[in-house]
């Protein structure tokens, strides 16, 4: 069973190949994403994040999930030398969207796991988690829309890509508040999407001089960086086709 819904400003695809799985599990997954959108959206004026930004809600009084996500944002800021920053667009405005997506997909995956679903994929606007083996994933070619730059054949993995060919999200270097130069896209793979996505965003923001070298130090996560000169730099454990 496959379902695509537009939630959190992006299409979310849930693919459960086993038709014996109760469809209500997939209902629950989309219910979860809609709840996340209501609480975290910076586009909805009554979301908890919007209320925190207007000074109407204290973080301590917010939903426990908000506290958790803001904690993860802070952690990501520290582990990425400040290149992942929930305040990158403006120091006064909190925008945890960059972490919410990956975190909510990780939680959706946990929901599917606990419902006993063995094989599934959740793709939230190009950042995804797969479980159960036998998945073939294409990494979007940064210059040619209909093409893929890499094919990965994987079992259990989170894959996040940050790039500038898209209009939906502008990645800024939080230190200069300008778009980074020299990097076309960064793909991070590893066990969790929240971390993979934060690392991809951070590495992209670092630009060509720092990104490949920073990714060489990551523990438990692999990276593929595509530079503007057409070179593709991968860490030794980055997955590929079998």
């Amino acid at each position: 069973m496959q379902r695509v819904e537009h939630v959190m400003g992006m299409p979310i695809l849930v693919d459960v190949p086993d038709d014996a799985v109760d469809e209500r599990v997939v209902d629950d997954v989309f219910g979860w994403f809609r709840w996340v959108d209501r609480v975290f959206s910076t586009y909805k004026s009554d979301s908890e994040i919007s209320r925190i930004n207007r000074g109407e809600l204290e973080v301590g009084d917010a939903d426990q999930c908000v506290v958790t996500v803001l904690g993860l944002c802070e952690q990501a800021r520290a582990t990425t030398d400040g290149y992942f920053d929930a305040r990158a667009s403006s120091p006064e405005l909190l925008d945890p969207s960059g972490l919410v997506k990956g975190w909510s997909v990780d939680r959706a995956a946990a929901l599917l796991d606990s419902a006993g679903v063995r094989r599934y994929a959740v793709n939230a606007g190009g950042d995804l988690v797969v479980r159960g083996g036998g998945w073939t994933i294409g990494i979007q070619h940064p210059l040619e829309r209909g093409e893929v730059a890499k094919v990965l054949e994987v079992g259990d993995l989170a894959v996040a890509t940050s790039a500038d060919y898209a209009r939906g999200r502008h990645v800024l270097d939080p230190h200069t508040r300008r778009p980074p130069v020299g990097v076309l896209s960064v793909t991070i793979t590893g066990p969790g999407l929240a971390t993979a996505d934060a690392y991809a965003t951070a590495a992209f923001a670092m630009g060509a001089d720092r990104a490949p070298h920073w990714t060489a130090r990551l523990e438990g996560y692999e990276a593929m960086t595509i530079l503007a000169d057409g070179s593709v730099l991968s860490t030794p454990g980055f997955p590929g086709a079998a």
Partner: peptide, 29 residues
Amino acid sequence: PWLKQETLAAQLKGNVQLISGATDTSYAF
């Protein structure tokens, strides 16, 4: 020297089931 270096090229898509890429609403959809 620790990083594998290749040159950007379109790959054979074969039976690609999912695409990882940056969020671009209409395109990603």
